[in-house]
Simulated scan of single mutants.
Amino acid sequence: MRARKALLIEKTFVRTFESCAEAFLEDKEKEWKNPKHRQQWRNTLQSYVYPFIGKLGVDEIELPHVLACLEPIWHSKTETAVRVRGRIETVLDWAQVRKYRKKENVARWKGHLDKVLATPSKIQKVEHHKSIPYGEIADFVSKLKLRQGMAAKALTLLILTCTRSGEVRGAEWSEVDLDKGIWTIPAERMKAGKEHRIALSSAALELLRALPRVEGSNLLFPGTKGQPLSDMTLLAVMRRMDVAAVPHGFRSTFRDWVGDCTSYPSDLAEAALAHTLESKVEAAYRRSDALERRRSMMEDWAKFCAKQ
């Protein structure tokens, strides 16, 4: 009797796309170490998917339903749309494995959506971060050193270490080993969700050793009330210096310098920038982060920035 009742409940209960997505997230979130990644999943589903198909039975979803989510943003927000498509596909796959859906996955790209939607690479606008040419970097750094305040010092470290703004603004003393000259950024603070070690140059170590330790804060560059600097703080420094570039652009400046002015291999520069290798085979074979090989490169970069 109990088994028959359970079967009846199962037949009458329809799993919606939203309930499947939330169950999938509950299953998988624990293995996603990057909290930003977890939040991005939820934000994209809530903004671009649930309003269209969230309340639909997961087994009722057809191609027109998926297109209703994607077509409004496919050309205007291509990068986001590509992620949304992939996440719909993943949820539908999960539903199929759980036996909540018997139909084909109508969100798959190859051999399906690629027949009705434009190829993302053909329509996506690539917006490069404005950067300073490497021939002008030494002059900029010399002027930057004359400026006071935590933001100017944070921007200097960003340039010397080729890091991203958020990585510098959130940097903590517990991540830095001044004796070994290594800054280790934990995986949860990295874009790719993987720990990144930085070989600190003599100039970077000198800057760090001169920083004041603010009581009650573990941050290298605390703002007001010991909180991290805002995401606009470093950009504001550059604006006050009347420079038409952005902090992220210094990574491009460094990459151009390596390619044009040095004999360091490109993979060493990519490792310094913590770029994820596109080739999974190459990534599998490259176990080391080449920290010590990178140390001389970062030292040369610091000297170049100081006109030495």
Rank of each mutant, 00 (worst) to 15 (best):
R101G: 04
K225I: 08
H37N: 04
D267G: 01
G216L: 01
R2C: 11
I185S: 00
V106Q: 08
T156H: 06
V14R: 13
S76T: 14
L229H: 03
V106L: 11
P265L: 08
Y134I: 14
I137D: 05
W74I: 07
I61W: 00
E270V: 04
A3N: 14
R295L: 06
I88K: 01
A244G: 07
A269T: 05
H129V: 02
V281W: 04
F17G: 06
E299K: 09
H37W: 05
R255C: 07
K153W: 07
L92V: 04
D260Y: 07
S131T: 05
S230R: 12
M297D: 05
G166Y: 01
V243F: 08
S142W: 08
A236D: 10
K103H: 10
G149S: 10
A236C: 10
V82A: 12
V82I: 12
S165H: 02
L7T: 06
K36Y: 03
K103W: 09
Q148R: 11
E18C: 06
S202D: 08
K77C: 04
K180E: 15
G111V: 12
E188S: 13
K33W: 04
A236K: 15
V84Q: 02
K99Q: 11
G216W: 06
R98G: 04
K145N: 09
P212S: 12
T119H: 15
M190A: 06
V58A: 05
W109K: 06
D139A: 12
P64F: 06
G54Q: 00
L92K: 05
D260W: 04
V97E: 09
K191W: 03
K33I: 08
R85Q: 14
R108N: 00
E26Q: 14
K194R: 15
R38S: 11
H112V: 01
R15E: 13
W301N: 03
R189K: 15
I159N: 05
H128C: 05
L157D: 00
K36L: 10
M232W: 09
R38C: 10
Y50T: 02
P72D: 08
K180Y: 10
R295I: 02
S279H: 08
D260F: 04
S266A: 13
S131Y: 05
V116M: 14
E270M: 07
K180R: 15
H65C: 06
E167L: 01
L273G: 05
E60V: 10
A154F: 00
K194T: 04
K125M: 12
V49Y: 03
G170N: 12
S296R: 12
E89N: 11
I185V: 15
T224A: 12
L92H: 03
I53P: 06
Q148T: 12
V84K: 00
L160K: 01
P228S: 14
W41E: 02
A244R: 14
T233Q: 13
V258M: 05
S19H: 09
E79R: 11
F24R: 12
L67G: 00
S217D: 03
R147Q: 07
R85V: 02
Q148I: 06
V97L: 11
A269F: 02
K307T: 12
W109M: 01
Q39A: 15
L144I: 00
D114N: 15
E26K: 15
S288M: 07
A272W: 01
T163D: 00
K303H: 14
L7W: 03
V84M: 03
K99A: 12
L208C: 04
Q227V: 00
Q46W: 01
S252P: 09
W41C: 03
I73C: 07
L205C: 13
L113Q: 10
I53K: 02
D300Y: 02
